[in-house]
Structure formats: structure tokens, C-alpha cells
Write a protein that binds this DNA or RNA. Structure first.
Lengths: 320, 320
DNA sequence: CCCGTTGTAGCAACCGGTTGCACAAACCTT
DNA sequence: AAGGTTTGTGCAACCGGTTGCTACAACGGG
């Protein structure tokens, strides 16, 4: 059994409250007593039980981070950035993955409640209403979603999509396929919104799709058949799957169809052709989300981070 | 404020112990009372506080999973498998990443202690001695490391390395570079052990290295200069970095040098040339680790999973 | 020398639950 | 109808800490 505060108190003939104060308010205890307590604690290998402490103080010094799919290379850099930032603030981050399933997401949030001081909700698939309800029990910072009155870190997807469409238009593309993501994705909606508002384009929507290579792979035939000369994909994974699917049909990228992704993940850079993409500021977002959670007592500050178009090899001039 | 058990008790004129039993031992409470309690609880949006419950029961129904680098594509499938398996057992998995830093690893374990029922320690970088000491405070299952008396899930790296070396020998390679991983990696030691015992080979060791693309990239010049015709890399990420580095020096793979990795991650399959690799059973390992943690009360059952050589395009006949 | 500070440590209530035990009412026996 | 079981609920201690209040001693000032 691990030593408790009582064991330490007994070991050096002092009341538990004195031991407690030795750790949480050292200036209130006599230096001589303090060192006796510390010696005894060290001797017994005592560590304060964080769960018990949280019960009275209401603070755990951990935060939860929920992502839709940890296997998507977009998330790890964000996760690592959040962890590093939190560590600098004496916090720890517990990560969990929802498998893109809103029910799992809800359950994870409920589990985190009272075990963390707040939750970073990254690319949630739950409805706004549900998120608002759950926010009564635990503070949130939402990443990649706008919910009124709730602190959020947004990436300027609309701007990125605009740049991407302008790039394609500049290359002479008019008929463009929009391969969207899963239901409930704010990012997907933003993209569609911008695209729909852009004049002079002939858009074909495909969706919803899984936000993975498999998702891209499986829409490839439809995209090929629709007569579009360019594709704006929900993310890089979908774009890569799409390129793979097109290759299997002997359709060359960018010679016959141009493809743009979102995120700027590593496999996109290694791919042949190298993927043209809209870079998302994942690292900054992870950091900002942590700061926002610690600063705001739940007030709705919103940070919007810029995106950037990175032109590589998967886009080219439209065919006649 | 979230409703507590007291609020529910007051709301339906019953003692808190009755409310408690309604949730944790329903058969002990009268159906009529039970439904009154449930109604009140539902009305107030009451959820038992898991941290408080853990304090008395000693069980949290979560487990921790600590990995060395979440950005390494090897880990996410393992993580997801563990999460899925745990979910089926009514458990939740909290993931954390150590950034390959033993000090962070230790701190994370300490943080997890008492907040989880056990920890899955994947590819730890801590010393055996330290792990054994920490095991007094929280049950472990170790993945990719053998520590006496401690439950472990091992992947048969030795066998995989043997297959890889035989494959290379069969292609006529004699002078082989071994690009190892970080200090403290059991996997790395296993590989070196097997290689050193294999007769008829001329081995050159390079290490320690970061287990990432950057690590592979930075040893590329030395490897190129050492006269080896083939390389066994610590993992696929290192292998990919190495290939990239060699390409930058205009050294073709597999024409001039053959490269084998370990893990079988997705980017290796997408790479040109497609990577020859030793596939590691990450998904099985994640599942097994969860089961081992829940079964063994800390007893040292060890599971060893087989690996398999997957020959793709990054290996070829040795040059004369 | 008395009194008001100040510093130090103990007491006890509390956080939100769980659980062994006691006890009364309702149910079965015979 | 008396006596023995069940069944259902309350009581209170407990898990491992924290914290407001109190008590007491030593100290400094007037």
C-alpha cells in the first residue's frame, strides 16, 4: 500500500493538517517541523493523492484533450503542442480519441468531468446543443468549431478555402469537385459556405465522407465521373486517398485532375506528387487552446488563426 | 454547480446511502424508491463524481497509456486498439506522450498514480530499476520491454531481425549497417543482439539515434560513407528519413543501398520506393495489454507476439 | 508586568461518495 | 399468534486530503 498523509503524520508525531500544510502551504509551518515532515515523507515514499486533493480543492491540474482520430497525422502535432504548453503551466494533458463517434465523444467528456479542470474539444462531432449542455459540468475550449459564448480556437478555413479556389481558378479550372468531411464537421461547412459564395465556379459536392484515406479512395470513381478538372478535399488524408484512387483508374494528378487538401500533414509532403494543401496552424492552436482554458473562466474568447496555401505538385493547369 | 448525491437525496426525501445504492447496487433498493431516486437524479442532471467514488472504492475504471511519441504512426493503431478493447470492458484510456524524455515519463506515471487503475507503458525509456520502483504505486503492463516479474507484451523483434538479415544475406549483402534507436530502447538492444550473433556478416553500428525521420536523415552521410550495401533501421520513420537523406546525395534505394525498417507504418507503404519492413503487431499488442492489465493483479504474465517480414521495394540484390 | 501580536500546530468539518452494521417492517413458517 | 427471515432504509465511519477556526506559547512594546 502506498503511504498516506496519516502515515507520515504518525511517523513524525504531528497532526495530518501539518503534513498537509507542509506540502500545500509551506510558509505556514515551522522550518524545523517542515524538514522533519519532509524527511518522514521521503522515507515513506509519500506522494499526495491527487484525486483526494482534487475532491476538496476542486482542482486537478489536469486537462482532457479529445480528438476525433488520433491516427490522423493532423492531430499529433497539436496534441504535443498542447502537452508541452500545459507542462509549462504545471498541468498534464490526458488525451482520448472518439473514433469519429459522437456517442463516444459524449461518454469521454462525461468521464473527464471532475477528473480534469477542463476539456479541449478538438474537431467535435457532437451537436452545438449537446456541447452547450455538457459545458455546464466542465469548462471547454473548442477547437475548430464556433459556438456562441464558448471559448474557441478557430483556424481560418474560409480564408484557406478562398485561397485554394483562387489558385485553382487562376489555373483555369471552372468545374470543381468539393469532397467534404463527416457530418457535424464545422470545417466542412465553412469550406462549403465559401465555395458556394464564390462566383464563376461550377461546383459539385460529394459528401459526407469519412475524413480518412479510405474516404478519399471510395469517392474517387464518382469524382472521376463528374467531369471536374479539380478537387478541393476535406483534408490531406482524403486528398491522398483520392489521388491513390485516381491513380488506380489511370487518371494522373495533376495532369488530368488537380487536387488540393487541407492540413499540411507529413505524408502529403512525402507523397508523389507532393500535395498542394492549405496549411493549418495546428501547433499554435494546441498552445492557444491550453492558454485559453487556463485564462478564461469559461468566458467566450475566440482566437482565429490564419491558414496558408502551400502550392506543391498536385495542382496544375486545367486541361482543355 | 453540478448536482451532488446530497441534492438528489434531499430532492426525494431519502438518505444519501440509498441514492448511492441506487447506482452502485440497485438490487438492494426497493423498485419504487429506486424509480423515485432515478427520476430525481435525472431531473437534477446528477452524475456520480468518479473521482470521489474512486476514493472509497479504490477503482477508477480508467487506465493510463504512456507512449514515447504520439506523432510516430506506429503508436496510433496501438492506442486505438487499446481504447476499443478497454471500452468493451467498461474502461477508459487516457493517453499521454513523453516526448522520448524519461523525466517526463516518470512524472506522467506519478500523475497517473491513483487516477487510473493501471498503466500501459509502451516502449518506455526509463531504466528497469525505476520502473520496478514505480510499480509499487500503480500496476503496470509493459509493452516492448522485458522486466522480470512484470506483465509484458512483447513483439518478437529478434525473430523479425533474423528474418530481415536472412533476407538481406539472401540478396548477397554482407556489409550491413545497423542504425539503432534511442538509449533505453529494449527493441534496439534486441536487434543488436541478434545481429551480433548472426555469423558471416560484417556489421557497422550507428547509434544512438532519434527514432524519427530526422534521426534517419542525419545518419545518412555516415551510412553512405561506411561502405555498407544494406541497412537495418530501428524503425520505419528512421528508414524513411534515411532514404530521403540518401536520395539527397543521389544514392538510389534499392539500386545502391537496400533499406529495411521496422513497424510497417502507413507512410512506408505510400513511399517510393515502398518500404520493405518487419511488421509489428501493434493492434494485437494494444488489445493484449489491456486484457493483461485487467486480468493479472500485477502478476508477471508475458505475451510474445510474432512479427513478419514484408518485402516491398526498398531491398534488392547487392551490388558487386 | 500586562497586553496585543505573531507564529505554529491541533481540532474538526468538509469534499462526494461507499459500505458494514443496526433496526424496523413485512413476509413466512408451523 | 409467536418466532424467524427477508427486505429496505438509515446511521455513521471511512477514503485521503484541505482549510477555517481556535489555542497556546513566545515575543515585543509601552
Amino acid at each position: 500500500m502506498a503511504a498516506t498523509i496519516k502515515d507520515v503524520a504518525r511517523a513524525c508525531g504531528v497532526h495530518v493538517s501539518t503534513v498537509s500544510r507542509t506540502f500545500s502551504a509551506p510558509h505556514l509551518v515551522n522550518p524545523a517541523t517542515r524538514s522533519r515532515v519532509l524527511a518522514a515523507a521521503d522515507d515513506l515514499g509519500y506522494r499526495p493523492n491527487r484525486a483526494a486533493r482534487a475532491l476538496t480543492t476542486g482542482r486537478t491540474f489536469n486537462m482532457g484533450l479529445i480528438v476525433a482520430d488520433i491516427a490522423n497525422p493532423f492531430f499529433p502535432p497539436l496534441i504535443k503542442a498542447a502537452q508541452a504548453q500545459a507542462r509549462g503551466r504545471d498541468y498534464h494533458v490526458f488525451v482520448a480519441d472518439t473514433d469519429e463517434d459522437p456517442r463516444v465523444e459524449e461518454e469521454l467528456i462525461r468521464t473527464f468531468t471532475k477528473q480534469v479542470d477542463g476539456v479541449l474539444l478538438c474537431s467535435p462531432r457532437l451537436s452545438n446543443k449537446m456541447i452547450e449542455r455538457l459545458a455546464e459540468d466542465v469548462p471547454f475550449v473548442v477547437i475548430n468549431r464556433r459556438i456562441k459564448g464558448m471559448p474557441a480556437v478557430l483556424m481560418n478555413v474560409a480564408q484557406g478555402a478562398k485561397l485554394a479556389l483562387e489558385h485553382l481558378a487562376g489555373l483555369g479550372h471552372r468545374r470543381i469537385a468539393l469532397v467534404s468531411g463527416p457530418i457535424g464537421s464545422w470545417t466542412s461547412n465553412e469550406m462549403q459556405g465559401v465555395a458556394a459564395e464564390t462566383p464563376g465556379l461550377d461546383l459539385i459536392f460529394f459528401g459526407p465522407n469519412q475524413p480518412t484515406e479510405a474516404g478519399g479512395l471510395s469517392v474517387a470513381p464518382e469524382v472521376a465521373a463528374c467531369g471536374a478538372t479539380a478537387v478541393l478535399a476535406y483534408n490531406d488524408l482524403v486528398a491522398l486517398g483520392l489521388i491513390e484512387g485516381l491513380a488506380a483508374m489511370e487518371i494522373g494528378v495533376p495532369d488530368q485532375i488537380s487536387v488540393i487538401g487541407f492540413d499540411d500533414i507529413l505524408p502529403g509532403r512525402l507523397n508523389r506528387p507532393k500535395l498542394t494543401t492549405v496549411a493549418m496552424p495546428a501547433v499554435q492552436a494546441g498552445r492557444m487552446a491550453v492558454d485559453l482554458l487556463l485564462q478564461s473562466g469559461g468566458e467566450g474568447a475566440t482566437v482565429t488563426l490564419d491558414t496558408a496555401l502551400i502550392v506543391r505538385e498536385s495542382t496544375g493547369r486545367a486541361q482543355k
